[in-house]
Nucleic acid binder design. Sequence first.
DNA 1: TACTACATTTAGTACGTACTAAACGTACAA
DNA 2: TTGTACGTTTAGTACGTACTAAATGTAGTA
Lengths: 176, 176
Amino acid sequence: MSQTIEQIKSEFIEGMSSMSQFSGFPKGMGASFAVLYLSPNPLSLDDLVEHTGLTKGAISTNVRALARLGLVRSVSRLADRKDYYEAETDFYKAIRAILKERKNSEFDRAVSSVKSALAELEADSGSGDEAERLFLRKRLQALQSFFDAVDSLTSAVTRLEGLGLNTVQSVLKILK
Amino acid sequence: MSQTIEQIKSEFIEGMSSMSQFSGFPKGMGASFAVLYLSPNPLSLDDLVEHTGLTKGAISTNVRALARLGLVRSVSRLADRKDYYEAETDFYKAIRAILKERKNSEFDRAVSSVKSALAELEADSGSGDEAERLFLRKRLQALQSFFDAVDSLTSAVTRLEGLGLNTVQSVLKILK
DNA sequence: TACTACATTTAGTACGTACTAAACGTACAA
DNA sequence: TTGTACGTTTAGTACGTACTAAATGTAGTA
């Protein structure tokens, strides 16, 4: 195997590690995905250990996380006890999965807390400073409508089956 | 000032803190922004210290970070040495600023590393396993076109001056 | 000049978390 | 049954980072 190809590979793996870390995921997750993405055939945990330099335990948890996100699929081979994994190559599919995952996250809880705050504000409309109450209402409503827009966007994306380049391109036309 | 209004405020502050943390920013950044966002008038660092419970040092760095992202503006009052700050209320504007900021980040460096990997791959086309070289090219090209789509999207957004609800809504129509 | 009221920066600390090493569980094989 | 080849879980560690407390600017004021 050529020297430069190995170089290119390991640069890519490092790049995906940084990217993963930057996005809030473990570095090892990015590295594992990168290795799988550059492999023509499914790899075992031991293969990943070899190519990433991480421990089997770390690989195990990272790959499981990737699988939960839909970025990696497990492939079982008959008459082979090992689990093999391959990378998802349809990124739009993967993005949808990640967005879906995040729906139940801390982020969404915060968003819905704004909604409930507004509801409470309307509820006991008698007490407290009336001017401040009005101001708060306005601010919270503005924030909520922003959140709603973001929410509609992401949930629209997750609902899509056939999101692909053509969809993205028509969106780009509007933004142009 | 009513008890329940104070409650609503502090719940909101806590929610924004969690949200901030989840998005990869310090909790204190979210808290500072939340306090400013709920205040009818600009606040000093000492005001923020009082309302968040953090130290002045922490507040200082957090507010500066918020200002760099365009989520907060400093307001100087004549004949007053204190700096005052107010929250940006146009979130679409803020989003654009954040996206712009991220253009020079680790994320983008990783993206461009894919591009250069492809270039290198084409360059020394003589050496190494030909089948693997072809496979790598295909995979890297697929990844790059995905990154390009994302990149066009975000840079289109940052270029927009008048991005608002109407734009978002027409995008939503397509995704529908 | 020295003083005051700020903001910023720095040294140190506490905490979360991704990792390693090793114990454990589990299923197939002899 | 024991042995073996896996994957997973756990206890401990190392590291990054957001914070506190305190020192250090810095610009107005007497």
